[in-house]
């Protein structure tokens, strides 16, 4: 029965000194935890989250833009029924590239690997959206008269294709969430999430939604 009392006494006697030392350690460990997790969250996590892939062929948009007459729509065209062709198929490229036109190694690779073997190029699409998203290029480009740059940025001026960063969890490109890990954007083409669609739709007071109800609704975009 005496023992607890002794303990209490000894603890009381060394109270002040222990408190000081422990307090420093507590703060230190707090800072360690804080800084460590910030580093993990800001530096390590993005490195782990995204894989880096090169495009199968390094395409030069700028060079092609000089040669075509109709801007982006020369290759990324609308079909007669109004549907959008998206990324060009091999059949389109072959019209000019049945044989290499120059000595650019990327062009030679393209002709040797894909044209001659009649294989479609497995382009990695930076703007690929999930299958549950219905997006009509015709509604935006033809009806709302938007330009390509608003969403896709000045990709037409690029001389080479940037590294494709695939999100290892979702499989989609980093360009959907945006380069900034907080999802902050400075330019309209920095992100392609649903909020970014909504921002423009709400802000521009475009007649947004369903033909029947004239209202916005989930089913306008999520068919």
């Amino acid at each position: 029965m005496e023992k607890p009392q002794v303990n209490v006494t000894s603890a009381a006697s060394g109270h002040g000194e222990k408190e000081e030392g422990a307090g420093g350690a507590v703060i230190l460990f707090f800072i360690l935890g804080l800084v460590g997790s910030l580093l993990v969250g800001w530096v390590l996590f993005p490195q782990l989250l995204y894989s880096k892939k090169r495009q199968p062929v390094d395409f030069n948009h700028d060079k092609h833009m000089e040669l075509v007459s109709d801007g982006c729509e020369s290759c990324h065209f609308f079909r007669p029924d109004g549907t959008y062709s998206g990324v060009p198929q091999l059949a389109q490229c072959i019209q000019c590239h049945e044989e290499p036109n120059g000595e650019d190694p990327e062009e030679v690779k393209f002709v040797e690997e894909y044209v001659k073997k009649e294989r479609e190029v497995p382009w990695l699409v930076y703007s690929r959206q999930p299958a549950c998203v219905f997006f009509s290029h015709a509604a935006h480009v033809k009806m709302a008269k938007m330009d390509c740059v608003t969403c896709h940025g000045p990709i037409g001026e690029s001389t080479s294709l940037k590294v494709y960063q695939a999100n290892r969890i979702t499989g989609y490109s980093r360009d959907i969430w945006g380069e900034n890990m907080l999802g902050v954007k400075r330019k309209s083409w920095d992100r392609m999430k649903m909020d970014d669609c909504a921002e423009c739709h709400a802000g521009a007071h475009v007649n947004p939604g369903s033909v029947q109800t004239q209202k916005d609704g989930c089913f306008v975009c999520h068919k």
Binding site: I27, F30, L34, S37, V40, G41, W42
Partner: peptide, 13 residues
């Protein structure tokens, strides 16, 4: 304390 710091840092990341 380490855990709390880590949680705070994670929340801020």
């Amino acid at each position: 304390s380490f855990i709390v710091g880590g949680a705070a840092g994670t929340a801020l990341s």
